[in-house]
């Protein structure tokens, strides 16, 4: 199948990529753009490890075709730290022990960032709702809740 050229913004940079129609957004970002921070945990949209922000909305990139982001704005985990400084959510995940094996972490941080963009001062219940699409097997979530609450306070 011939490739199709698409143009999109990835982490603030205009990017042209030739993609196969059957590639997912995740596949394109990992294999073609070589941004391997976003992870595939299930491939069926159930774990959230591949979460990215497309046009300001959190999505599971394993279920979006690469062709579907033609002309759109994509933010991946690699787009969060600026000039070598970690995003407050990233720092909070380190500080509170919200990181263990790290495989869910990029997606979890994207979900947390997206939650805080919508709800800057969430309650614990709002945090639990906002992260429900992101599975973590290591932490039992306790320290992740702490991280998000911590980042929210740091952002004030």
């Amino acid at each position: 199948m011939p490739k199709q050229l698409i143009t999109l913004i990835v982490n603030g940079r205009r990017t042209e990529v030739a993609v196969e129609p059957r590639w997912t957004l995740l596949e394109m970002v990992r294999e073609e753009l070589r941004l391997s921070g976003s992870k595939e945990g299930c491939g069926t949209g159930d774990c959230g490890a591949c979460s990215m922000i497309v046009d300001g909305r959190l999505v599971t990139s394993c279920l979006m075709l690469a062709t579907q982001v033609d002309g759109r704005d994509v933010v991946t985990i690699e787009g969060l730290a600026k000039n070598g400084r970690l995003h407050p959510v990233q720092q909070a995940f380190i500080d509170t022990g919200g990181v263990q094996c790290g495989f869910c972490t990029p997606g979890m941080i994207m979900a947390a960032k997206s939650l805080l963009d919508r709800t800057p001062s969430p309650t614990l219940e709002e945090v639990r709702e906002g992260l429900a699409g992101n599975l973590c097997r290591c932490t039992g979530y306790a320290k992740i809740y702490e991280a998000v609450m911590h980042a929210a306070n740091a952002g004030k």
């Binding site: 959190l58 999505v59 599971t60 279920l63 939650l115 992101n134």
Partner: peptide, 9 residues
């Protein structure tokens, strides 16, 4: 319907 991610898609 699913998670926030699902609802957005």
């Amino acid at each position: 319907v699913g998670s926030i991610q699902t609802m957005n898609m």
